[in-house]
């Protein structure tokens, strides 16, 4: 039996039945013997410059060459113009905090992090960004405060992301 079956009752295991009993109701539950682990590969070829420039500490958005619409998250197709001629532009990162929350109960795949603040900031270019806001003391956070979007290294995975930090007032 697999690791998933650790909670299977010894007596039922002896009868060769993968049965566990619900802790609250004692009702029998079939403990699935087939385990599926999902990990996706997501195509980023069309927006690859965004990731290349992260390594240089830059955060890029896309501007449609025809109508001037600014896209963040970046997308290479302008649905307004139905055209795909775009410029990559570097965002200043300077913005204001619009709203935020402190996540106490985390998704399972985020359970190894300390509690984190997720913020939505509006950058001076007009686009909004959702990202973590790195602060020592959450009581110092307030709507309207100046924040800056920066590239940082996410630990323990050691990969590049962007996050907000309080701006020097």
């Amino acid at each position: 039996m697999s690791a998933e079956n650790k909670d299977v009752d010894k007596e039922t295991l002896r009868k060769k039945l993968p049965i566990t009993y619900d802790k609250k109701t004692q009702l029998p539950l079939w403990r699935d013997v087939r385990t599926l682990t999902l990990n996706y590969t997501i195509s980023v070829g069309k927006i690859f410059p965004f990731f290349e420039k992260l390594a240089e500490g830059k955060i890029l958005a896309i501007k449609c060459k025809h109508c001037g619409e600014l896209y963040f998250p970046p997308q290479v197709d302008c649905p307004k113009c139905r055209k795909s001629e775009v410029d990559w532009i570097e965002l200043s990162g300077e913005g204001e905090l619009e709203t935020y929350t402190l996540i106490k109960i985390k998704p399972q795949s985020f359970s190894h992090y300390d509690d984190y603040v997720i913020a939505i900031g509006r950058l001076k270019e007009g686009v909004r960004v959702l990202a973590w806001l790195r602060v020592d003391d959450i009581s110092k956070i307030h709507i309207g405060m100046k924040i800056k979007l920066v590239v940082s290294e996410r630990l323990p995975e050691s990969y590049l992301v962007y996050e907000f930090v309080p701006a020097e007032e």
């Binding site: 998250p73 929350t101 795949s109």
Partner: peptide, 30 residues
């Protein structure tokens, strides 16, 4: 909780920032 959280935009919201659905509505409450 993990599956519910993935109902938001997966790549640009969930993948790096791990919001939950409570978190999304907390944006509105705040």
């Amino acid at each position: 909780v993990e599956i519910l959280a993935r109902i938001g935009n997966y790549f640009w919201e969930f993948e790096n920032f791990g919001p939950t659905f409570v978190g999304y509505y907390a944006f509105f409450a705040t």
